[in-house]
Simulated assay, not measured.
Amino acid sequence: MTPPAPRPKRATIFDVAAEAGVSRGTVSRVLNGEPYVSETARTAIEAAIAKVGYVRNTAARNLARQSSGAIALIVHEPHSVFVDDPNIGNILLGTNSALSAADYQLVTLVIETDRDSERVSGYLGGGFVDGAIIVSAREGDPISQAIAELRLPAVMIGRPDNQPRLAWVGIDNRGAAQQISERLAATGRHRVGMIAAGLDRDSGRDRLAGFQDALGARYDADLVSRQPFYTFDAGVAGMTELLERDPAIDGVFAASDAVAAGAIDVLRARGRRVPEDVGVVGFDDSAWALRSQPLLSTVRQPAASLGARAAELVLEQIRSGGTSGDGGVVLDTEVVWRASA
Rank of each mutant, 00 (worst) to 15 (best):
A186F: 07
Y230G: 09
A186I: 14
R226N: 11
P228G: 01
D246M: 12
D250G: 02
G170E: 09
W168L: 06
R189Y: 09
A196N: 10
E149Y: 04
A196K: 00
R272W: 14
F211G: 04
L243S: 03
L208Q: 05
A269T: 13
A154F: 02
L267A: 05
A261K: 01
D246W: 10
P160N: 02
Q145R: 09
D141W: 02
L215K: 05
I180K: 00
S203P: 15
V281G: 03
G210N: 03
V266C: 04
D222R: 06
Q178M: 12
R201N: 13
A148H: 15
R245V: 15
G251E: 03
M239D: 05
G251K: 03
G235P: 12
G204M: 05
A177D: 13
E244A: 12
D257R: 05
A237Q: 10
I143W: 00
D246V: 12
A167H: 05
D206R: 05
D206I: 05
N162H: 01
R207W: 04
L215R: 10
Q145C: 04
A148P: 13
A255T: 11
D202N: 12
D222Y: 03
R268D: 15
L223R: 04
D257M: 13
T240Q: 09
V280A: 02
G158L: 06
A146W: 08
D161K: 01
V192C: 00
V224S: 01
R272E: 08
R174T: 09
I249G: 00
